[in-house]
């Protein structure tokens, strides 16, 4: 571990936080699991993982974490939201990102799937993406850049320093999206 490795938080109220922690740790970041507002202090970046968005939203309310999370986002700290994390960041929840998520948009678990996605400005070919009871972006504002789609539905997007993905890059072997997030984190920390 290098001394100036960025400190990345992973929201660990419920869900796929362990897999994100494993990937980020493997890429040389320092990782902190976040369960209370005090855990947000000093973070260079934050991941909101997949899981159940209802469960996570209730946890955010119980811990009094909604305002601290909004403050972290408005301070310019890079955020990565995957699957439920995309939902938690949308207009109807934390309102950090100008998107409207549609939950379980592809259907129940039997409709969960893997697919190769063409990704805007990402070198090295398509991303192999794992979609689990995944949402898509049903509507978005003009400040949102769509990065990938499945059959015309946006499943990856960026707005400033916030990156959201409908799928689970932490479950695959292709870590380019985590690397790209860490580049943002390092740039913002400078």
């Amino acid at each position: 571990m290098v001394v100036d490795a960025p400190l990345v938080g992973v929201l660990a109220l419920q869900g796929g936080y362990a897999a994100h922690t494993r990937v980020l740790d493997g890429l040389g970041a320092r990782v902190r699991e976040v369960r209370v507002p005090a855990d947000l202090a000093g973070l260079d970046g934050l991941v909101i993982p997949g899981g159940e968005s209802t469960t996570m939203s209730l946890g955010i309310d119980r811990e009094g974490m909604a305002e601290p999370l909004r403050a972290l986002a408005s301070s310019g700290t890079p955020l990565l939201g995957t699957c439920a994390g995309l939902i938690v960041l949308d207009r109807a929840h934390l309102g950090v990102m100008d998107i409207q998520a549609r939950r379980n948009a592809f259907g129940r678990q039997v409709r969960s799937f893997e697919a190769d996605l063409r990704f805007a400005d990402l070198e090295g070919g398509p991303v192999h993406a794992v979609f689990i009871r995944a949402p898509w972006i049903a509507a978005h504002g003009p400040g949102v850049e769509v990065l990938a789609e499945v059959d015309g539905h946006p499943v990856a997007a960026r707005q400033g320093h916030v990156l959201v993905l409908s799928f689970h890059p932490e479950l695959g072997d292709d870590h380019r999206l985590h690397e790209r997030f860490l580049e943002d984190v390092r740039a913002a920390a400078r």
Binding site: A12, L13, Q14, G15, G16, Y17, A18, A19, G50, G51, E52, T55, C83, A84, Q109, V110, R111, S112, F113, E114, A115, V130, F131, I132, R133, H168, L171, G172
Partner: peptide, 19 residues
Amino acid sequence: RDESTFRVKAGLAEMLKGG
């Protein structure tokens, strides 16, 4: 799309962690 692969099945279990 590759539906219902083992990765997708175990992936849902992964998303239920900590719950």
